[in-house]
Write a protein that binds this DNA or RNA. Structure first.
Lengths: 344, 344
DNA sequence: CTGTTAGCGCTTTCAA
DNA sequence: TTGAAAGCGCTAACAG
């Protein structure tokens, strides 16, 4: 049986109320009582039941963070940023992993509500996440969407500039002489995929290169294997691309695997660029030419927006924060710059 | 204001009890009542308050997972495995990140207790985590320790065979002709660091190579920068190592950075091996020679052990599971095997 | 400074 | 099949 407040009170020879006051650091407790209560707490290993206190106070001191995949280095950084800010503000972060699965997302969303988190940070699985968010609104739980906008939703949002970023990557490939540029993307139900495809098209249009639909292949973002298979389709074209733009840092692993199987060396036989870095990998071997988004900042700013709402010091208007990405040229695009970024 | 059961009951024209029965899938509810209640729940977007139900039932349907760093690919996989098994068993996973910080670990531990999780999976920060675990015992909360044993603690444990793994890596380096082998490790308060150092020593002894303490440098495991600085010390020795053994996959990034700064090419000028893979990186560019531990299995088995305890179908005896690691030779050790594993 | 009373939202128990 | 009463562990509001 778990230790309860009453047991602590008995042991300390006071009422439950006094124990409660000690725990909540109320000043109105005599030195003697406080000492005895603290001793009893230590001896018994008492941990206050937040279900009970939360029930009354409507405060659990927790915020929920829901992401498709903590294993994705991008989301990992988002989470780290969020946790850092939340912790400093006295909140604890509870993390949920949806695997990009709508049902699981819905489940965890309700879970978080059920546990009475005070607010939520969500990287939605896609546009279809919208109905799930209605539950949050109905229950008056503030939340901030991260990374992916949701068509038709108008809440707070922190995202990158995917259109501009993709355009920049493609312009770079074009400048290097590429004309057949393939793209491995994910479902268009995800806004970043839509936006990056648009950036791709814009860059092509600006260079008067005709858009060829067969150069666009779709794969699930979470799954390296799917990206691999999609890439194989590209490489099997009669007129295969000389460069590939991967929609993100997970898909790019599949692209590289497919290329390696075919004996294609990067960048000699195939140029490769993508969105989002692979944190540890890029430090270990700086190789991929990428648009690096400030993932950690996505997390810190989103948390800040949420904390504002929790503090009630915010208007009803939605706030949208768009963070620019950095273009980092390394080897995989074939531009032959020094390996070490610092040497640039 | 959040939607409550009473509101649903009023709207459906029944008592709260009937709503409760519908939610908990009791069969003793008339068809008509059930339909009306379900309609009311949907209209209102009602989500049952688990703080309240958990308060009574002592069941929250959640298990807590506490790790030093979700960004570490090894722990990420552990978490994924745990979540998969937990989810299938009807449990939800709540994740906490301690950054290897004892205070934070303690805080999250109490948090999890406070939220009344039914059990915990813990990758402890180190031996000093032991006092924190007493709180769990006092409150009768089952838990399983993962990856790192804790001196003096005797609960369920899932870990790798660090001694044998390290010995294998060092034997390999010795076979390649190395005699000056450095090791970048972390605090000996972490059992895996202790064990890997022991494996290192055993391999040296077996080859009758004298152990030189100055070849062992210590760094915080979480921090790439610290590993970098530690490596610099090794490279500054009058008689620097020709090979380095990194205690894990995070430290190895710092080692590589330091080597690159010095203009040392791996493996030409310096051989490099380590424990644990860098998931995406290794698929993208198979380069590091490593002992790969079955991280996901650490998570699934630990969860299984925990679920057993939760089901109460287990004796009081502790259970220890030791999982072997795979030795994967790639390029960084200088053994010149084909890049592609499949080609072996 | 300390204790008592009431009740958070829900489920258990029991009676109808 | 349904509801009323009691209470999970805690704290707000009050009284002393």
């Amino acid at each position: 049986m778990r230790v309860t407040m009453r047991q602590v009170a008995e042991r300390a020879g006071v009422s439950a109320m006094t124990v409660s006051r000690v725990i909540n650091e109320s000043l109105r407790v005599s030195e003697g009582a406080r000492t005895r209560v603290e001793a009893a707490i230590a001896e018994l290993g008492y941990v206050p039941n937040r279900l009970a206190s939360g029930l009354i106070r409507r405060k659990t001191g927790a915020i929920g963070v829901i992401v498709p995949d903590v294993a994705n280095p991008f989301f990992t950084l988002v989470v780290r940023g969020a946790e850092e800010v939340a912790w400093r503000a006295g909140y604890h972060v509870i993390l949920c992993n949806t695997q990009g699965d709508l049902e699981r997302e819905r489940g965890y969303l309700e879970d978080m509500l059920a546990f009475q988190v005070e607010g939520l940070l969500i990287v939605p699985a896609g546009d279809q996440s919208r109905p799930s968010l209605r539950v949050l609104k109905k229950n008056d739980v503030p939340f901030v969407i991260i990374d992916r906008s949701i068509a038709g939703h108008d809440g707070d949002l922190v995202q990158g500039d995917s259109v501009a970023g993709a355009r920049r990557l493609i312009e770079h490939l074009i400048a290097l002489g590429h004309r057949h540029i393939g793209m491995v993307t994910e479902t268009s139900a995800v806004s970043t995929a839509r936006d990056r495809l648009q950036g791709y098209k814009e860059a092509l249009a600006a260079a008067r290169i005709q858009f060829r639909p067969e150069l666009i292949v779709e794969a699930s973002a979470i799954d390296v294997g799917a990206a691999h298979d999609a890439t194989v389709k590209l490489l099997d074209l009669l007129d295969p691309p000389t460069a590939i733009f991967s929609v993100n840092n997970i898909a790019v692993v599949g692209v590289a695997e497919a290329a390696r199987e075919r004996g294609l060396a990067i960048p000699r036989d195939l140029a490769l660029v993508c969105f989002d870095d692979i944190e540890h990998a890029s430090r270990f071997l700086p190789f991929l030419t990428v648009m690096v988004q400030p993932a950690e900042t996505f997390g810190t700013i989103a948390t800040q927006l949420l904390l504002d709402r929790l503090a009630g010091q915010v208007s009803e208007r939605r706030r949208i924060v768009v963070l620019p990405a950095d273009f980092i040229v390394r080897e995989s695009c074939g531009a032959h710059v020094p390996v070490d970024d610092a040497a640039a």
